[in-house]
Design a protein around this nucleic acid. Sequence first.
RNA 1: GGAGGGGUGCCGGAGUGGUUGAACGGGGCGGUCUCGAAAACCGUUGUGCGGGUAACCCCUGUACCGAGGGUUCGAAUCCCUCCCCCUCCGCCA
Length: 438
Amino acid sequence: MLDPRSVRTDPDTVRASQAARGADPTVVDRYLDIDAARREAIGRYEQLRAEQKQLGKRIGPAQGALKRADEADRRARQDEVDALLTQAAGLAEQVKAAEAQAADLQQQLDVIALDLDNVVDPAAPVGGEEDFVVLAEVGHPRDFPTEGFTPRDHLEIGARLRAIDVERGAKVSGSRFFYLTGDGALLEIALLNLAISLATGNGLTPVIPPALVNPAAMEATGFLGQAAENVYHLADDDMYLVGTAEVPLAGYHGDEIIPAGDLPLRYVGFSPCFRREAGSHGRDTRGIIRVHQFDKVEMFTYCAPEDAVAEHEQLLRWQREFLDLLEIPYRVIDVATGDLGASAARKFDIEAWIPTQGRYREVTSTSNCTTFQSRRLNIRLRSGEGTVAPLATLNGTLVAMPRVIVALLENHQTRDGDVRVPPALRPFLGGREALTAP
RNA sequence: GGAGGGGUGCCGGAGUGGUUGAACGGGGCGGUCUCGAAAACCGUUGUGCGGGUAACCCCUGUACCGAGGGUUCGAAUCCCUCCCCCUCCGCCA
């Protein structure tokens, strides 16, 4: 949600942002029209309401006077009370109508406000999905022909190691489900432990959040908008399965006012993630690149708006450090405006090199949501001067298990199909230097 | 799942229809006193929205006593629905 005041005072910026996203800029003008009508309606209602309260204050005493009145006075007193009540009844009707009108316009504004995405960061590259800018390339993809063998894909390696089982995943749950078994399961646990130990070492608070949330939490984090078709909904209970720990981590401080001195608040959550993957039929059908359920370690920060850009860079640094430790070649891209989520002002993705695909695939993503998300969640900060203001929220993947496992298996495979364990991960795998077939 | 109790401001806790945004206590903040501190005393203490302002402070109006409806001239107070919390029983990782 944008600040209504800033939309009012600086509509051109919002229009330009909408255009950069490939979204409809004329929403701004409809928004402004409704906002103007709303403010007028509120004024009308409040004035009538003030009159009603003034009048109401005279009724009590008048009725008291009637009760105490003697015979001679009774008639006059009764007339006075009746007159007041008649007047008040008429006013009450007007108040009710004015209130309904104001409420209706407020609701209209709330609805259209959902069509206004966050204002993009001027630093973000303008364009569509293909218009990203590569910020860095790290490591070198291996030259398998020179090494003298053809790389196996993660599914083949996973089957050989008895680490990944998609057939049984399909048998029990359906397509896009999988089992991690043996070293596969141990690998995820090792990645989890490495990630959490790094994150806590950096001062983040570890959190294991609920993965099932109510509609308000889902709505406030923006996942019931364009992304709604990818969200699992439990109709009997009207609950949602989260697609990321961002949802419960963002909702955690909902409706709170946080002292500025407590900021930044940094969390690292571990949760299962559920995604319907509607509209991606036929894409990434082989292996575990795109699945309906996976585990993820996600960082989440609440900070002062002026610190958000620096915080965004910090999250990106932590993400890079993790992949550096895993010795996976990757590149960092600055995602273009047209490919940003509705709540992100800027987004960096890290894409890992996948040898058998001969290309980079997204493994992490970090978004600066500025004050957009906190407005919907009603999270604010209290400054030293005692004033309250919205704060910024940012999120970033530390490790999305399946894709990192894919990258790890494929990039570190040996000629005979074993997998070298990068040194940083060894302490979490009992010191083992390689994963080998059982 | 069954039975009962309860949701009021930063916290505790009053308040059953009319100057109640809300008594009282605690806490916080400011001040007096003190070399300083404590104690004591005095004062102050929310948020959203609209208007006065382009904006802050400020002034003013209005809304907010779990949420949403209703009754009424008027609702924290009465009615309905829902949500949440607590206690006991049952079931259960």
